[in-house]
């Protein structure tokens, strides 16, 4: 057991968070706050696990998981974009809905055995680099590598392409985009769908790769909410989201590991003295989320970067304001 192994597991764990965070960044960039990430991840995890079992192919499972989460996200899209309802309340209700559906349809899934999982492999050459190769390029499931590719792609898309510029404009100043002849409503439906797909992918990464299986609400255990918090910390920037995602992943693994704190922090895992102190360690990722939010909002204040200006506001044609 050494540091590289713990960090390697942390990167794997962080991948699920990364997908969900990237999805929420894209959704929020279009001006829609979707608080249903936790529910959508759970639905993605449940569907992909069940479908992977049914078809005997994990990739088909992932596809179904993403589609299920994407479809359920359209409930939020209809309510917030077309019916112009409050995005916070709608997101919360989406969360209840998706969680409930996952629990009902996912009943009994935890007794399945031999469900096909995402394959793991080394990246040739890169995995030979000492330490870094072990942490980032060896023995990971395919989805982890997909995550590496997705971060720069998402950054490039948002900042350097024409549709990405439209996306940012929709979130900042929808009436100007509307005047340009771009369909604000359609754009928002689409990016809510993309956010759903990625949340579903995050869920699938949990149930088919990181910690295989479906254990009701414990499958995601609040990671969707952490992702929503990470978006604020990331200041709607995919690169920062990647940092946040992997750090949180490492933190989640760390608390499971007996020797981790000694290697990383220099003191023995309190779990070692009294197994019940582990409950305090389990609080860490959640407490850390709050701390990260404090850091994030202070920094945003200082650098004067804020959320997309139209975030949380319904776009109503012809109405004054944004």
């Amino acid at each position: 057991m050494n540091l590289a192994i713990i960090l390697q597991a942390g990167v794997a764990t962080g991948t699920a968070l990364l997908f969900a965070t990237l999805g929420e960044i894209l959704t929020e960039r279009s001006g829609i706050l979707n608080l249903g990430v936790e529910g959508m991840m759970l639905l993605g995890a449940m569907t992909s696990y069940a479908m992977s079992n049914k078809f005997g192919n994990p990739w088909i499972g992932i596809l179904f998981g993403m589609l299920a989460a994407g479809l359920v996200s359209q409930v939020h899209a209809f309510i917030t974009v077309t019916l112009q309802a409050d995005q916070v309340v709608s997101g919360l209700s989406l969360n209840f809905l998706a969680t409930g559906i996952s629990l009902v349809l996912g009943e009994g899934l935890n007794s399945l055995v031999g469900v096909p999982l995402i394959p793991k492999f080394d990246i040739p050459l890169l995995s030979q680099i000492p330490f870094i190769g072990d942490v980032f390029f060896a023995g990971h499931s395919a989805l982890v590598y997909v995550g590496y590719l997705m971060v720069p792609l998402a950054w490039y898309f948002i900042n350097r392409t024409r549709p990405g510029m439209h996306l940012r404009a929709v979130g900042e100043y929808p009436s100007a985009v509307d005047a340009q002849g771009i369909n604000v409503f359609g754009m928002r439906y689409f990016y809510i769908f993309v956010g759903g797909l990625l949340a579903g992918l995050g869920g699938a990464a949990i149930s088919l790769a990181i910690s295989p299986g479906f254990f009701a609400e414990k499958t995601t255990s609040g990671q969707g909410w952490i992702a929503v918090g990470l978006v604020i910390f990331a200041q709607w920037n995919p690169i920062r989201a990647a940092f946040g995602g992997y750090i949180f992943g490492a933190l989640r693994r760390l608390v499971l590991d007996i020797q981790g704190p000694m290697l990383l922090l220099g003191f023995a895992n309190p779990f070692y003295y009294n197994p019940y102190y582990g409950f305090f360690l389990k609080m860490l990722p959640y407490a850390f989320t709050v701390i990260v939010l404090i850091i994030g909002s202070r920094e945003a204040n200082r650098k004067r970067v804020g959320s997309p200006a139209a975030l949380g506001l319904p776009y109503i044609r012809g109405q004054r304001g944004l």
């Binding site: 309340v89 209700s93 969360n95 209840f96 969680t99 409930g100 629990l103 009943e107």
Partner: peptide, 26 residues
Amino acid sequence: IQPSGVPTMIQGVIMVFLIASDFFMR
């Protein structure tokens, strides 16, 4: 009730319809 997620799900569906119905108030 089996399956055990039914109450959570019903609550979610109620909430979704409730927030959607707000449209008719406006």
